[in-house]
Computed example of a mutant assay.
Amino acid sequence: MRERLLYLLKHCSNLNHVETAHGFMVRTALHHDKLLLSQFIETCSSLGFSAYAHSVFSVNSQSHPHIYVFNTMIKGMTLCNSAFEALLVYKSIGRVGLRPDCYSFPFALKAVVDLRAMSLGTQIHSQAICAGLESNVHVVSALIQMYSSCARISDARKVFDEMPLASVCSDDVVVWMAMIAGYVKVGDPDTAMDLLSRMPRTQTDGAVLITWTSVIAGYAQMDRPDEAIAVFRKMQLENVVPDEIAMLAVLSACAQLGAFHIRLGECIHGYVKKRGYDQMVTLKNALIEMYSNSGNISNALHVFVNMTRRTVISWTTIISALAFHGLGTQALDMFSRMEMAQVKPNDITFIAVLSACAHVGLVDLGRYYFHAMKYRYGIQHEIQHYGCMIDLLGRAG
Score class of each variant (00 low, 15 high):
residue 146 M to Y: 01
residue 164 P to I: 10
residue 143 L to T: 07
residue 150 C to W: 06
residue 158 K to E: 13
residue 151 A to E: 15
residue 172 D to L: 00
residue 176 W to S: 05
residue 168 V to H: 12
residue 175 V to K: 03
residue 157 R to T: 05
residue 122 T to N: 02
residue 164 P to C: 09
residue 157 R to F: 05
residue 160 F to N: 09
residue 160 F to R: 09
residue 177 M to A: 13
residue 160 F to K: 09
residue 157 R to N: 06
residue 129 I to L: 13
residue 135 S to H: 15
residue 125 H to G: 08
residue 120 L to T: 13
residue 178 A to R: 03
residue 148 S to I: 01
residue 149 S to T: 11
residue 129 I to T: 13
residue 176 W to N: 11
residue 168 V to K: 13
residue 146 M to I: 06
residue 124 I to R: 11
residue 156 A to F: 06
residue 138 H to W: 12
residue 132 G to W: 02
residue 165 L to T: 12
residue 164 P to N: 09
residue 137 V to T: 03
residue 145 Q to T: 14
residue 154 S to W: 09
residue 141 S to L: 03
residue 134 E to W: 04
residue 131 A to S: 15
residue 123 Q to G: 00
residue 130 C to R: 14
residue 144 I to E: 07
residue 157 R to Y: 07
residue 148 S to F: 02
residue 174 V to Q: 06
residue 129 I to P: 01
residue 139 V to E: 06
residue 168 V to G: 11
residue 131 A to K: 03
residue 144 I to P: 05
residue 155 D to Q: 12
residue 141 S to M: 06
residue 179 M to T: 08
residue 136 N to S: 05
residue 156 A to I: 05
residue 130 C to Y: 01
residue 122 T to I: 13
residue 167 S to A: 12
residue 119 S to Y: 12
residue 160 F to H: 04
residue 155 D to T: 03
residue 178 A to G: 02
residue 131 A to Q: 05
residue 133 L to A: 10
residue 166 A to M: 09
residue 143 L to W: 07
residue 144 I to R: 09
residue 174 V to C: 04
residue 131 A to N: 10
residue 159 V to H: 02
residue 160 F to Q: 08
residue 176 W to E: 10
residue 153 I to S: 02
residue 163 M to P: 00
residue 143 L to G: 09
residue 133 L to Y: 12
residue 132 G to F: 02
residue 164 P to W: 03
residue 159 V to P: 03
residue 154 S to K: 14
residue 173 V to I: 12
residue 142 A to K: 08
residue 145 Q to S: 15
residue 139 V to Y: 10
residue 165 L to Y: 01
residue 172 D to Q: 08
residue 149 S to I: 00
residue 145 Q to K: 15
residue 156 A to M: 06
residue 147 Y to G: 06
residue 135 S to W: 04
residue 143 L to H: 07
residue 125 H to W: 07
residue 173 V to W: 00
residue 121 G to Q: 08
residue 163 M to K: 00
residue 124 I to P: 10
residue 148 S to T: 06
residue 132 G to H: 03
residue 138 H to E: 11
residue 130 C to G: 00
residue 123 Q to W: 07
residue 149 S to D: 13
residue 173 V to Y: 00
residue 163 M to W: 14
residue 149 S to L: 00
residue 120 L to I: 08
residue 152 R to T: 03
residue 139 V to I: 09
residue 125 H to M: 04
residue 144 I to H: 12
residue 166 A to C: 05
residue 123 Q to M: 11
residue 166 A to Y: 00
residue 177 M to R: 14
residue 179 M to P: 05
residue 127 Q to S: 14
residue 145 Q to L: 08
residue 165 L to R: 15
residue 135 S to M: 02
residue 150 C to F: 02
residue 150 C to E: 13
residue 121 G to R: 09
residue 163 M to Q: 02
residue 128 A to T: 09
residue 143 L to R: 10
residue 164 P to L: 06
residue 142 A to H: 02
residue 172 D to R: 02
residue 153 I to L: 11
residue 178 A to M: 04
residue 171 D to Q: 14
residue 163 M to A: 05
residue 139 V to D: 07
residue 125 H to T: 07
residue 144 I to S: 06
residue 123 Q to S: 11
residue 158 K to P: 00
residue 142 A to T: 05
residue 172 D to A: 15
